[in-house]
Design a protein around this nucleic acid. Structure first.
Lengths: 218, 218
DNA sequence: ATCAAAACTTGATCTACATCAATGCGCAGC
DNA sequence: GCTGCGCATTGATGTAGATCAAGTTTTGAT
């Protein structure tokens, strides 16, 4: 199962073309700037204090972006997995020190592109500028939705929505991390799981399949 | 005092130039696409179901972007005031129906630019594309900060941070709306105010000056 | 100025969720 | 196989903030 540069670039092109269509010539240039990168399970793609040099495209694997407060509490901001981008966008875009951790929760085969190349592409191709703009728009809309949810929905509802919209997360990530993403304690998530499972059938399927799903490594 | 198109455009140019420098020729074109718009206190700039046709620049005034849940609860997502932009970005950018309200909480003198003109400017000038990209980056970073805060900080800390970082909000907006922005009930904000004021001097100044324009401490 | 409607305050109670604590489970290393 | 450690579960208890209820003050329209 070759997660090579070439197969990665194919996937990347499909994902990028969803927003902007690049010509073959443009694509050749763009593709030439990405390199294959491997991050083993547990490895950190970035930690606070560093400046984010790359933007990453995950060919296969999963990472978790999180923040540690001065008191040592761990909060998950976002999940990234196959065919999505990751990295500390804030640091990458502003060139300031990262404030977040980004850790592989399974072996990650990725492509990455450094800041200088992205900047050159932005200068060279208006389409590239547009691609980034459209991508940021999508991110922004997603964050607004999440913000409304965090403000207005109680824990149980946030949980059931995640269950419905991103069931795969329950296979990829530990309950601890999902709890910290939902803004609750692991104990509370455990109790919610049981309560919801006892009420609905499909919730049970998703939750239980997570239990057997440890084999997901590699 | 004249909140005319011209004085508004001057302010707009200064704000836009902070991210990208436009030539006089470019600016003439850009400026020609904005029009003066007045929204009286209480008026809605947009309500759910409409598609956002404009992006707004506030010359003077203040608005509040909020969401009403099916159960009728009101949640404030963002505040906009002098020299900031407003509108339902999500709807404007994606051309889908708005999900938010945006209401003037004081008389608003604004400039606005419609979707077609913004799109044309994006096509015509790479710099314009970049300006939007950079603006979205800033928004995104701000939202990440807010997300971390909402997850990790308790109500009192969120309150004192807003007090320190945006004290003017306590003059512009009612406690009800500030409470819904902080994710708490108005009663809780009232109690927090008293608790915090009894502890720190400068908090007292900010909070009390909200009650009536300008009052110094005994 | 007068009055009604909102906004804010304050107190009493309630509850969702956190915290603390004990136990069991599953996987990694020896 | 054991052994140890991090993760999940379950129960008992604590608490921040919600909710309910009654005032008071501010606003704004006539």
């Amino acid at each position: 199962m070759p997660h090579t540069l070439e197969t990665g670039l194919e996937a990347l092109r499909i994902v990028m073309n969803a927003l902007v269509t690049f010509t073959d010539a443009e694509w050749t240039d763009i593709a030439s700037r990405w390199q294959y990168h491997y991050l083993p399970k547990g490895g950190h793609q970035i930690v606070p204090g560093q400046t984010e040099e790359y933007i990453y495209f995950i060919i296969s694997g999963a990472t978790r972006i999180y923040h540690i407060t001065p008191k040592g509490e761990d909060f998950t901001l976002a999940f990234s997995y196959d065919n999505t981008f990751t990295g500390d966008y804030g640091s990458f875009l502003t060139r300031r020190k990262a404030t977040f951790y980004n850790q592989a929760v399974s072996d990650c085969h990725m492509l990455r592109c450094n800041y200088k190349d992205i900047a050159e592409l932005h200068d060279k191709y208006q389409k590239m500028e547009r691609w980034t703009r459209l991508g940021l728009e999508g991110l922004l809309v997603g964050m607004l939705v999440r913000q409304v949810e965090m403000l207005s929905a109680p824990a149980e509802e946030r949980f059931t929505r995640l269950l419905k919209q991103s069931p795969h997360c329950f296979q990829l990530y530990s309950q601890k991390h999902i709890a910290s993403y939902l803004g609750i304690q692991p104990e509370t998530l455990s109790r919610l799981k049981r309560r919801v499972a006892s009420e609905t059938q499909d919730a049970r399927n998703v939750i239980l399949s997570g239990a057997e799903g440890h084999k997901t490594q590699d």
